[in-house]
C-alpha cells in the first residue's frame, strides 16, 4: 500500500462523546493509540495476513462506534464487506479511505 494515503485531506473529526466527562479520557486514549492501530492494519494488509487484518479491522469497527466515531465504524464495516466478497486484494480502496478518515480523528482539544 502506498505510504501517505492516510494523510488528512479534510478537517479533523471529533468524537460524539468528546464532551462526555465519563468518556473524554477514553476518547483521548483511543485517538492517541489510533496511529499504532493503523500501522498494524497496514502491516497486516501489506504482509497479506488476512486473518490478522480482518481481526484488526473488526476491532476498529467496534471501537470506532464505541468511542463515538461512527464514520470510522462505517468505513471499517465497508472494509469487512469488501474482504468477505473479494478477499484481501480487493479492499485497497476501502482501506485507504478508512486510514484517511482515521488520520483525521482528533480529541478536539
Amino acid at each position: 500500500m502506498p505510504r501517505g494515503e492516510n494523510q488528512p485531506k479534510a478537517g479533523p473529526i471529533t468524537s460524539e462523546y468528546a464532551s462526555d466527562p465519563d468518556m473524554s479520557e477514553l476518547v483521548d486514549l483511543f485517538v492517541t493509540e489510533l496511529p499504532a492501530r493503523l500501522a498494524a492494519i497496514r502491516s497486516a494488509h501489506d504482509a497479506g495476513n488476512g486473518g490478522a487484518f480482518a481481526r484488526l479491522v473488526h476491532q476498529l469497527k467496534s471501537a470506532g462506534s464505541g468511542y463515538g466515531f461512527p464514520g470510522i465504524a462505517e468505513r471499517a464495516a465497508a472494509v469487512e464487506d469488501g474482504l468477505r466478497s473479494g478477499g484481501l486484494a480487493s479492499v485497497q480502496r476501502q482501506v485507504s479511505e478508512l486510514l484517511e478518515l482515521c488520520a483525521r480523528a482528533s480529541t478536539g482539544r
Binding site: E25, L26, L29, Q59, S62, A63, G66
Partner: peptide
Amino acid sequence: DSVDVHRLLKARLR
C-alpha cells in the same frame, strides 16, 4: 477479546 469493549464498559457501568 477486545480491550476497547472492556474499557468502554468499565466507563459506562462506572
